[in-house]
């Protein structure tokens, strides 16, 4: 069983399907594709974390470009809002890289996980119980 499993997860088909799922998530939901791909590359393909991260970015950037193009055609791009978020996001990214070695990443991830569970649960709740037209 274990051998079969490791055989299947190291196949080209599994890699392709994961790529497809990552692209689908990124296009449909705007983010999250990389979160799927990094652990698969790290554990099934035995890439070290840094390489898994870098390779994932290389896959996700083209999918984000294409998705952004389709979103723009559909009129989903609020450029003034995007400008504000992007500028402060770049500042935050630099800050994050600088303070990374001093931050207890594990606990930060656990805290973010809690936030995601709560806000995700709230969105599910809204989807099922808000009146139509919301």
């Amino acid at each position: 069983m274990d051998r079969m499993k490791s055989h299947w997860t190291s196949s080209a088909l599994f890699l392709g399907l994961t790529g497809f799922a990552a692209g689908l998530a990124n296009g449909l939901l705007g983010s999250g594709g990389g979160t799927l791909l990094v652990p698969v590359l790290a554990s099934c393909r035995h890439l070290e974390q840094h390489k898994a991260h870098a390779t994932t970015l290389c896959v996700i950037l083209p999918t984000a470009v294409i998705s952004a193009f389709i979103y723009a055609k559909n009129g989903f791009m609020d450029w003034p809002l995007i400008l504000k978020i992007t500028l402060s996001g770049i500042l935050g990214g630099v800050t994050g890289a600088l303070i990374l070695p001093k931050v207890p990443t594990g606990w930060l991830r656990a805290a973010l996980g809690c936030f995601m569970l709560i806000s995700g649960g709230k969105m599910l709740w809204t989807c099922f119980f808000m009146p139509p037209g919301f």
């Binding site: 890699l15 896959v59 998705s67």
Partner: peptide, 12 residues
């Protein structure tokens, strides 16, 4: 990875 991911992104 890329061709599959791009196809997924277009669909998504």
């Amino acid at each position: 990875l890329l061709p599959w991911a791009v196809a997924g992104a277009v669909l998504g």
